[in-house]
Design a protein around this nucleic acid. Structure first.
Lengths: 220, 220
DNA sequence: CCCGTAATGTACGAACCAGTACGTTATTTG
DNA sequence: CAAATAACGTACTGGTTCGTACATTACGGG
């Protein structure tokens, strides 16, 4: 209910009372969790505020409105994933092995960032209207795509890979598999009684995407 | 579209003023479109009612509340897909060709039922809580799975298919690909500037799922 | 042909919820 | 150190939205 108004909180070096960056970041964190949990329309600004050490007023102070808050949540979520993708260095590997590495990395990303997958699902229900409103996102290239393009070129030159696929096709196929496990986990489990995220399947599925793509690319 | 309920609607005069079946069906149709369009929380009961030839009162008369309405929308959506799947008869085909047929059918289903794909996405955001509340859905087996099981068994017996995959794995892989094209269409297009549902890619993608699965299953 | 009930319509309410008006305190800058 | 301003809090509002109380009409069984 009412916050303890007893000031003089000073006591043992409390965190700075005014810290715009921290407050802003805390709102974004909480909002990301809340949006991922309940969806855009299901999430409540009041609830986000309550789960923060600040107030609803601050959300509007920093983010203008609920839509803009979601835009920045998405921007941050995509940025995290992208920065991880940039660490990928497979130019020295055999093309097939490079594909395996890329698939594995993508698999791991999605497995360890379920909230990201949910946020993307939610944004798709809204027809990507928030991404469209974000300069940061609509102009952001995907480093994984460049990597993929080079791998495919090398594979084709070596006569190993088929010619009728481009990087986006391969990226789509890998993403589809990885996204599906998380995004459709609940209905799949309800209907087929199998939890796709059960650790028992993890390694099997991880090998499966890689095998699928490599066998497809190398099929004559 | 919807077939008139029981009998021939008495002559050509004004439609029957009282027709429970028709009213109920019209509500379900409209609700399905509205939920698919806006999501569960984004959809408005008042809006659904307005797009119907009846009133909001009737929605509550037949469906108790918004959640139950969504449950029945899902039941109907799944039933439509399932009934189409049952027409599949591939037991006389070569296992690889049978897989191609199944993948193609699944592909076509998803391509021609985008609303179904969206409803499933929405239900996953809600952690399949509505399906859990539906006896019809949580006890409904998937005919495509039985078909798949038989295909795989034949393929293995013939020494053509690998042994370390089960029907659910294959179903998952095919669904993932087909669902992704529709479910993640908007964010994919916003970020990569490629509309996965562009007719120009249709045949290519359709062949791609089938090839991916067959090459994977037959890989040594 | 009449009456019970299934089917339908109208109007309303209570809760909820995004967003704001207004006031206060800390921090920075000149 | 004073004045400006950035950061923050409280309390409220106006519109929305699910759901319902109450009234009414068509239809079918007896």
């Amino acid at each position: 209910m009412a916050a303890p108004s007893s000031d003089a909180v000073a006591s043992s070096g409390p965190a700075r009372i005014r810290d715009a960056d921290r407050t802003r970041a805390e709102i974004l964190d909480t909002a990301a969790r809340e949006f991922a949990e309940k969806g855009f329309d299901g999430a409540r600004v009041d609830e986000i505020a309550a789960k923060t050490r600040t107030t609803k007023r601050m959300i509007y102070y920093y983010f203008t409105n609920k839509d803009q808050l979601f835009v920045e949540v998405l921007e941050r979520a995509y940025t995290v994933i992208r920065s991880l993708e940039q660490d990928l260095d497979v130019d020295h590997l055999d093309p097939a092995e490079a594909i395996r590495q890329l698939a594995g990395l993508t698999f791991d990303h999605h497995e360890s960032h379920p909230d990201f997958v949910r946020l993307v699902s939610i944004e798709n229900i809204h027809r990507a209207e928030h991404i469209a409103r974000s300069n940061a996102l609509s102009n952001l290239a995907n480093p994984a795509l460049d990597v993929l393009t080079r791998i495919l070129a090398r594979g084709r030159e070596a006569g190993q890979f088929r010619e009728d696929v481009d990087a986006l096709d391969v990226h789509m196929a890998i993403s589809a598999f990885c996204v599906f496990r998380t995004a459709n986990r609940y209905t799949f489990n309800a209907i087929f009684d199998r939890d796709m995220l059960d650790p028992a399947f993890r390694d099997h599925h991880r090998r499966m995407v890689a095998d699928m793509l490599v066998s497809y690319l190398t099929a004559r």
